[in-house]
Design a protein around this nucleic acid. Structure first.
Lengths: 194, 194
DNA sequence: GTCTATACTGTGATAGAC
DNA sequence: GTCTATCACAGTATAGAC
């Protein structure tokens, strides 16, 4: 449901695999990963538990499958970054593009934030962090002072953690996003100014 | 083990309750909360599962008990902050004190970061966030522009999230802590300058 | 007050028939 | 490709020994 069909064989109906993903992410978000049973997912789909095990090796494997699209988008940004000069303008543009990717994957990122332990188990967290480090390497020189490297790291984390943890009251999603981006860009500008 | 004895009755040996806490936080950190069974904890202590249930209502209750000391320390900071003028010098000092509290509770905070979902279940996460918001209210005026309020929020989260998520290589814990604090203070200085 | 013995329900997972 | 049957083990609960 959330995810666009990857291989649209008949273009008509989502595959069983995709239906499982859709139901799973909905229930995981509602009740949490650990408190959503496979029986529950199976019942929502009108199949048995064992049917799920045909499509996914384990329960954690279902969760891990959510990240494919996000990881691809992030790779795309870094690929672009590799072709650009290592200067401030490139870096602000990288952050702008990353903000867009985040925007398109908020449910997945929120799920990740809430279930880091489960994802670490399946070595999915390291895949995520590896990409985060690749982006980081584009935002700051590796021989820069610690505080510069750390500020670049914060520029990345700020961008999605505010979206998830900042205690909103009246503000719209767009306002949050815009302010996050401004703070994030401000941090690498501070690096460039020094 | 990690926690200082609260009520030192005989001053000699830790109580069973404290022994459970010590073993639990060690095993939770090693294998993760969800993948540590009560049987495992009980076996390490040479008691039965049921004995754990005498001292704690549920498994989640064990995890929740870790936070008492941290919460108290954070309350202490805010109590002090309430007596001070609402100006920049107070705010940098608040961050400095908070950094010290974090330093004393890194294992607990790391555990929290990794198991947000489990803690949300027991309504322990909201207790934590409530205190975070109290500190936030001391760092920024409630009618300040969104970007200022958000920057104050980032000043708080940066302080402990860098400690946990920043990909360290050679840097010592002290260097990380010092750099985090500097970035954090820089953010509320940016607020004051505007 | 502190613990053991025992049992219960529901979980993720597997093997093998259709 | 899907289902039935079954598994070991999880968290939980209670009765009762010391």
């Amino acid at each position: 449901m959330t995810e666009a069909p990857r291989e649209a064989r008949e273009q008509n109906q989502p595959s069983t695999r995709e239906r499982i993903q859709g139901t799973a992410i909905a229930l995981f978000s509602e009740h949490g990963y650990e408190h959503t049973s496979l029986r529950e997912i199976a019942e929502h789909l009108g199949v048995t538990k064992a049917a799920l095990y045909y499509h996914f090796k384990t329960k954690e494997d279902i969760a891990a499958s959510f990240f494919e699209s996000y990881a691809n988008d992030l790779d795309g940004i870094c690929d672009w970054g590799d072709t650009q000069p290592r200067e401030l303008a490139t870096r602000t543009e990288l952050l702008r593009r990353y903000a867009e990717v985040i925007r398109a994957h908020v449910p997945v990122l929120r799920f990740m934030q809430n279930n880091q332990a489960a994802l670490t188990r399946l070595d999915r967290m390291s895949v995520f962090r590896l990409r985060q480090r690749r982006l980081h390497a584009l935002l700051v020189e590796s021989d820069a002072p610690l505080i510069h490297r750390m500020r670049a790291w914060d520029a990345i984390t700020t961008l999605y953690s505010n979206w998830i943890t900042y205690p909103r009251v009246d503000e719209s999603e767009d306002e949050i996003r815009e302010a996050s981006l401004q703070i994030s860009i401000g941090m690498i500008e501070a690096n460039a100014a020094a």
